[in-house]
């Protein structure tokens, strides 16, 4: 066989993979691009077929109308809930994970088994009882009603335990001999070595809490607790009456863009963490 022909064959095959892959990639991103462009068009240019790709003039009218809603309050709520949840998840999860990984105490195995078993309890089963409990506690309509159930999840405890098990035991033994008690060992030796685990759990917890939908939806009795995902749900056009539907497509696009841009920026900055964490947490969890 002519060596050149096999070489060209190889290039051809590579091309046959790369070109469709590239087209597929563009198509995958197109919806996001399209919604961003839509949000910037004057209302008249949104509903056209064939579509008008670029707006004749950039218009911020939809953004103006989105911001008539208490978007600021929603943002504060979302960030408040996500940040407090994340901090609590880190603190409680790391401490409990360490105890399950390294300390001996009565009932440890059965408690850890319970934590593992709770992976199987879908949150949806708890909607009704949690709703009733929040009523009893007088927490309905507060941010804590959204924070507390998410902190109770077993995920961070499990991940932290796995990570702590991978820290060489000699280090803690050495610290014990150097005179460190349990808390000193945990705070001075183990935690400084756990920055990767903390970032992982922190990012996952933040994303999860910021993006959650069903529970905040049930707890959102007023704008005072409403989160961005729930609040922006009001801009989904299909839920509106058919009158003036054009305006709602524009508003929806503007609202979506307002969240897409920061989400993508955060993702691009932290993409390594996102993907690596999913590999490790997915494999083990």
């Amino acid at each position: 066989m002519n060596p050149n022909s096999t070489r060209y064959g190889r290039y051809l095959i590579r091309l046959l993979i790369i070109v469709p892959g590239f087209i597929f990639t563009v198509l995958w991103f197109l919806p996001l691009l399209w919604i961003i462009l839509t949000s910037l068009k004057p209302t008249a240019e949104i509903l056209t077929n064939p579509p008008q790709w670029l707006p004749s003039a950039f218009s911020l009218e939809h953004y103006g109308r989105v911001l008539e809603k208490p978007v600021g309050q929603w943002t504060i709520n979302s960030l408040y809930i996500a940040i407090i949840s994340t901090i609590l998840t880190l603190v409680l999860g790391a401490a409990a994970g360490y105890a399950f990984a390294r300390l001996r105490f009565f009932g440890r195995d059965i408690l850890f088994w319970l934590v593992l078993a709770s992976f199987m309890m879908p949150f949806e089963v708890m909607l009704i009882p949690l709703y009733r409990m929040m009523g009893d506690f007088g927490l309905v309509g507060t941010r804590w009603s959204i924070i507390l159930p998410s902190v109770a999840g077993p995920f961070s405890v499990y991940l932290f335990r796995q990570f702590f098990l991978s820290i060489p035991r000699d280090l803690e033994d050495a610290a014990a001999i150097d005179g460190a008690g349990v808390w000193a060992r945990f705070v001075l030796v183990v935690l400084p070595l756990s920055v990767p685990a903390c970032t992982a759990v922190g990012i996952l917890a933040f994303a999860e809490n910021f993006n959650q939908y069903i529970w905040p939806l049930i707890m959102s009795t007023s704008d005072a607790v409403m989160t961005l995902p729930v609040g922006f749900g009001q801009f989904a056009p299909s839920l509106q009456g058919s009158t003036n539907i054009t305006q709602y497509y524009g508003m929806g696009a503007a609202a979506a863009t307002l969240l897409i841009i920061p989400s993508l920026i955060v993702f691009l900055i932290l993409q390594r963490f996102f993907m690596d964490n999913i590999i490790t947490s997915g494999m083990k969890g």
Partner: peptide, 29 residues
Amino acid sequence: ISRLVFFAPFVLTATIVAIVWNWMFQTQF
């Protein structure tokens, strides 16, 4: 780049995904 693009939607909240595809699947436009 493809990897980033393929993964990116996963970081979005459900509401955005719903709004985006509502618009994408709109019958006329």
